[in-house]
Design a protein around this nucleic acid. Structure first.
Lengths: 348, 348
DNA sequence: CTGAAAGCGCTTACAG
DNA sequence: CTGAAAGCGCTTACAG
């Protein structure tokens, strides 16, 4: 009875959302004053402030972020585009990103896409919501798209990818260096028949890791003779390693483009071929996901420093939001060898 | 030069976003007509439609979802609140939820919180963005909060939790039944000294699993003598199992409140105590995460049917959005025993 | 400190 | 089919 709207017979399904106007009416102040109470920094007499707050509480008022976003130029929302996240790597990523963003007052609009193509289809949706910025994980951005985004002024930062043109903000592990590290390690351990299990075809991470690996092999006069295709999944590593180990001429060491595949490789070597790792075969992974240190695997791996990568990404994004006309910022993070028990050389 | 605004010297950092007004001006039509072109179903002459679309394309126009949300009553955004996601379980959850929501035209606003308390602090943020609904994973909702939400009319559905009052939508695995299943299995296999490694204290999942487990033990005249506290993490399972196995009187079977802890228990049993599993000790987990079937573990477990749970949650949510005044909907999903190689009874 | 008014970018009756 | 106008819930100069 008490709450009657102008519109006589409105058939909205939604309940009436209490607005500043409602509070103003009851408090006998202007709507602008109510607004001032809720935007800190604005001055309102103590007396009115209290009256407004009491009534707001009574009515269960919540400021409407949508309306605020419309008039202010920002939404305090960041779009986070995750490409194919099955990897344990990503769970941690999402968690760290959302937490960091929350701490800075941002909310996260999450998009889950299968590949770069689907990403480019979804990206406009993020833009429609006027996100203040976008983080894209593990996917390239076509230069066409990049240009389009630059036009809108919405900052983008690529995580775990980079553009060759260097015209988009990006934070990336130095994967080439990681590939080199893997090769050096295995060579120093005395291996001579090195194999590579590749990650998703066409991904820059895979290309760079392989390139670094081959580069060092070349320097020592070897060719990469054993190479099987995987797709970063456990199952693909398992299958690829099986193909490798069925050969008459077996490799004596395998570098896998990520930890998940390395675990698959390890399991097939031990459980299907009854090989001793590292006695008969050494295995190195990439990422250093939490499972890599579980005793069941205790995997030697090339660590991607997650935390620094996430922190840097947030930093680059915040900078870009502050000064949208800045130059593209490209940051490299250095990977690190973590010796455990799937290679020979480690301390025993 | 071409693009000059009314405002002479506006110092907005943001670039000017092209709006329907801009297009209208150039196309020589009213802004309402431009709007009609972009809201399907509305009729516009083919000629004008084309002109508008061409110019929109030229200018790089994107409809503003924020403005649209303000006038329509819905945002097409669903809030997804994830409590402490380190478990591989959650990675899959988030993925499935976002994908399902996307397929139905919704975007996902993701919140990452540590516990129920932090959740209740964050929830208002979701409300401020006027989300059309909220999914909350693995956290209780106080009745105070539940009541407050009911007032706003924003539908909520709990995932993997329920309220005793039954006044909030919820989709939950029948954890009590899962606990019973675990006990029955171990008892049938001939075990007599059953232990339990508990999940996070105070969580209803843990309470119910334990209760079902104890219930069946009781029916067979046993008391739960061995019980150690964990927190659902691998490490906690590892440590809890160690405490259990250090006893003079050792259990001969352990039921762990989730798979991750079961893997920790398995690793400590094998690598630290040199026990044979299932020869000396049987282990059962809960969840059936992907890793559970890797040969390194091959874990017998109580499967939570993820896909049905996610699908049901979406269904309940969509129903609640359609008819906000419906009764609270409470759905139970039945868990299932998956026999692998960490228990005796399985086919060999 | 405070109110009246304009405006953010849309949608949607209301007339024609 | 189409335009003028009101309104969604806010913020923010502009005066006082």
């Amino acid at each position: 009875m008490a709450d009657q709207n102008q519109l006589s017979a409105n058939k909205t399904k939604r309940k009436h959302r209490v607005s500043q106007k409602d509070i103003a009416r009851r408090a006998g102040v202007s709507q602008a004053t109510v607004s001032r109470v809720f935007s800190d920094g604005d001055s309102v007499s103590e007396q009115k402030r209290e009256r407004v707050l009491t009534i707001a509480e009574e009515l269960g008022y919540r400021p409407d972020a949508i309306a605020r976003s419309l008039v202010q130029r920002d939404t305090m929302i960041i779009g986070l585009v995750i490409v194919r996240f099955t990897n344990p790597f990503y769970a941690r990523m999402i968690k760290d990103f959302t937490r960091q963003l929350q701490n800075r007052g941002y909310s996260t609009l999450l998009f889950n896409v299968e590949d770069s193509q689907e990403m480019e289809e979804r990206l406009p949706t993020a833009l429609q919501y006027r996100v203040d910025g976008v983080i894209i994980t593990s996917a390239m951005l076509s230069s066409k798209m990049a240009a389009e985004y630059a036009k809108t002024g919405t900052p983008i930062v690529l995580f775990n990818r980079y553009t060759l043109e260097g015209n988009v903000n990006a934070v990336c592990c130095d994967n080439t260096e990681g590939g080199r590290l893997a090769a050096q390690t295995l060579l120093e351990d005395g291996h001579e028949r090195l194999a590579y299990i590749a990650g998703e075809q066409g991904s820059s991470t895979n290309r760079d890791r392989k390139q670094g690996f081959e580069e060092v092999l070349g320097q020592h006069g070897y060719l990469l003779q054993w190479c099987e295709q995987g797709d970063y999944s456990y199952e693909s590593g398992y299958a690829a390693a099986r193909r490798l180990l069925q050969n008459d001429q077996r490799p004596d060491a395998i570098f896998c483009a990520n930890d998940l595949m390395a675990m698959g490789a390890l399991d097939v070597a031990r459980h299907e071929f009854n090989l001793k790792v590292p006695g008969d075969l050494s295995i190195i992974g990439f990422d250093d996901i939490p499972m890599a240190q579980w005793p069941c695997y205790s995997l030697t791996t090339i660590r991607q420093p997650f935390k620094p990568m996430v922190d840097t990404t947030i930093e680059v994004l915040m900078n870009a939001i502050q000064s949208p006309d800045g130059e593209a910022d490209m940051r490299w993070v250095t990977p690190e060898l973590i010796r455990r028990r799937t290679t020979r050389g480690g301390k025993v």
